[in-house]
């Protein structure tokens, strides 16, 4: 008998009688109803975990801010066509090792999560799976209205995104994708005496841009 069959037989023999799955706490839980301003909740959590956030009117403003924050970013790769002038755009990188010297990656994420400051990004928006991790600095762009209250709603949103992709709304055959991640703040560690250090192996900084087209540029910069 193979190990597989042995393990499965032992598990089946020893597992207790059936227990039903519970229902999940949903979006209707007290603190997460429409009365809370989700984007300001998102921003304050993100700042508390070492990230930064800018609410902007559009991509012009993003370009200006990035230019000021990272004047010497070196190699820049972006997944946003509106920011193509800032660096490499639309290229394919079959070997992830060629991303080794990227100074700044600017990618478009799907949505943010107010309770923990995380952004959900799927492989098709990463250019290369390694890019959001290997870049020295990372900027993510989301729509300000695309912020969900908590992780339960986040997974509902992910299911909708996949259903939409499977329906042919996204170009390319492989709709579900093979890799996706929540990114919450810059890479960090506190392994040495619990001292927080930003920039462990991945990006040393994370900026999230919240685009709100109804916003006026007046008053910014």
């Amino acid at each position: 008998m193979s190990s597989r069959d042995k393990i499965l037989a032992a598990v089946k023999n020893n597992q207790p009688g059936p227990r039903a799955l519970p229902s999940l706490p949903g979006e209707d839980t007290a603190a997460h109803t429409g009365t809370v301003d989700l984007s300001s909740a998102f921003v304050s959590v993100l700042e508390a975990i070492g990230g930064s956030a800018y609410t902007v009117s559009g991509f012009d403003r993003i370009a200006t801010i990035l230019h000021e924050l990272h004047p010497r970013a070196g190699r820049v790769i972006t997944g946003c066509p509106e920011l193509a002038a800032l660096g490499e755009y639309g290229e394919k990188y079959a070997d992830p090792h060629t991303l080794e010297d990227v100074g700044l990656a600017i990618l478009s994420a799907h949505f943010g999560v107010a309770e923990n400051g995380a952004c959900w990004i799927t492989e098709d928006r990463m250019i290369g799976r390694a890019l959001p991790f290997i870049a020295q600095h990372l900027a993510l762009v989301i729509r300000r209205q695309n912020i969900v209250p908590n992780m339960h709603v986040a997974y509902e949103r992910i299911a909708e995104l996949e259903a939409g992709a499977a329906g042919g709304n996204v170009a390319g055959g492989d709709s579900t994708g093979g890799f996706a991640t929540f990114i919450a703040g810059p890479s960090k560690t506190a392994d040495i005496e619990q001292s927080l250090v930003l920039g462990a192996h991945g990006p040393r900084s994370l900026i999230v841009f919240l685009i709100d087209e109804e916003l006026s540029d007046a008053g910014f910069y």
């Binding site: 999940l24 975990i49 400051g117 992780m151 986040a154 994708g177 890799f179 929540f182 919450a184």
Partner: peptide, 26 residues
């Protein structure tokens, strides 16, 4: 995952979530 990712980092270090929660499928 929504339930467990809400609990894990808060219980471990007091963070609202770990920096990366990577979903490997293919």
């Amino acid at each position: 995952l929504g339930v467990f990712l809400r609990l894990l980092a808060r219980s471990a270090t007091g963070q609202p979530i770990t920096t990366y929660s990577s979903h490997f499928k293919k």
